[in-house]
Structures are given as C-alpha cells and as structure tokens.
Computed example of a mutant assay.
Amino acid sequence: MADSRPAARVLCVDAQERVLLLRWHDHVSDVIFWEPPGGGIEPGETPLEAARRELGEETGLPGESVLDLWVPVERDYHWLGVHYVKTEPFFLARFDHTPDVASTELTPEENGTYRGHAWHTREELAALPEPVEPPNLLAILDHLL
C-alpha cells in the first residue's frame, strides 16, 4: 500500500541559475540520491507555509524567500522502506547570490540519512552519477522559471 502523506518542496535558484539539491542516503534500499529541500505538511499548515518552514529547517535559508509560485508534481518513490505515491507542490525560491546552506535543524531520521548539499547547473544535474528526484526536475524548473 502506498503512502500519500502531503508534502511540499522548494526549487532554490541562485544568481548563476544553479539549483540547490540535498544529497540523501536511503539505508533501506542503499540508494544515494539528490532532491530539493522540502518535507511533510503539518496539520493546519498550508503547502506554502510548509515549504517555507522546511526550507529553513533543512537549509537555514530564509523561508520568506519561497515565492507563492508552484507547480503540482506527481511523485512515485520509495524512502526508508515506504512507497509514496502523491502529488506535491514544488515552489520556487530565487536568490540574487549563492547563499550559504546550513542544515542545522534536521530531524534524527534526516541526520542519519543526510549526505550534504550542492548548487548544480543544468549540465551538472544532467550528468550526476546518482539519481535526481524527481527524475523530471529540469522540466519542473522550466515550468517555474
């Protein structure tokens, strides 16, 4: 049975048009992959509020940088033994520089699976040896920009 817990993600774009991705290790499937910051929507939160909160928690970047501009993204993936099938809003955050990222408010689960972050150009994204989630990230970015 698939889990459909609501979540929101943020595509952060810097002045050089690079995208911020976080690197994760799913120790159940032993897969390492890259994904935009984001996470679960808490009860009573709007998707935008969740995106802003998650951005701050996972990256230390200011939540108010997340614009009320988003696209729905169909997701079908596995994480720590759970199969997720759902639609997530992907929001846009633009920065006029390359901000420092400090993942200091990660949950215990995230601390055990987080492997770092990087700002990637489109070319670098396409050439990454590890999977990017979702696989159609560049198309999503094109819709938001």
Score class of each variant (00 low, 15 high):
1 M>V: 10
3 D>W: 00
3 D>Q: 03
3 D>S: 06
4 S>A: 15
4 S>M: 08
5 R>D: 10
5 R>Q: 12
5 R>T: 15
6 P>V: 05
7 A>V: 02
7 A>E: 14
7 A>P: 07
8 A>Q: 07
8 A>D: 05
11 L>V: 15
11 L>C: 10
12 C>D: 06
13 V>Q: 14
13 V>N: 09
14 D>Y: 00
14 D>A: 11
17 E>T: 13
18 R>I: 07
18 R>Q: 15
20 L>H: 02
21 L>P: 01
21 L>A: 04
23 R>S: 07
23 R>H: 14
24 W>A: 09
26 D>W: 04
27 H>Y: 10
27 H>Q: 13
32 I>F: 04
33 F>V: 06
33 F>W: 14
34 W>Y: 15
36 P>Q: 04
36 P>C: 10
36 P>E: 03
38 G>W: 00
38 G>Q: 02
39 G>H: 01
40 G>Q: 13
40 G>H: 11
41 I>D: 00
41 I>H: 00
45 E>T: 03
45 E>Q: 15
48 L>S: 01
52 R>G: 02
52 R>H: 05
54 E>N: 15
54 E>S: 11
54 E>L: 13
54 E>K: 11
59 T>I: 02
60 G>M: 04
61 L>I: 02
63 G>R: 06
63 G>S: 10
64 E>F: 13
65 S>E: 11
67 L>M: 14
70 W>C: 01
70 W>L: 03
71 V>M: 04
72 P>W: 03
73 V>T: 03
73 V>S: 01
74 E>F: 01
74 E>G: 00
77 Y>I: 02
78 H>L: 13
78 H>Q: 12
78 H>F: 03
79 W>N: 06
80 L>Y: 09
84 Y>H: 12
87 T>M: 06
88 E>L: 07
91 F>P: 05
91 F>Q: 05
94 R>K: 15
98 T>Y: 01
99 P>M: 03
99 P>H: 03
100 D>Q: 14
101 V>C: 05
102 A>R: 15
103 S>V: 05
103 S>M: 08
106 L>Q: 10
106 L>H: 02
107 T>Q: 10
107 T>L: 14
109 E>M: 11
112 G>S: 12
112 G>T: 09
113 T>Y: 06
114 Y>P: 03
115 R>I: 08
116 G>M: 09
117 H>M: 06
117 H>D: 03
121 T>I: 09
121 T>A: 11
123 E>N: 10
123 E>S: 14
125 L>R: 03
127 A>M: 07
128 L>T: 02
128 L>E: 01
132 V>A: 05
138 L>D: 09
140 I>A: 04
142 D>W: 11
142 D>S: 13
143 H>C: 14
143 H>M: 13
144 L>M: 07
144 L>S: 04
145 L>H: 12
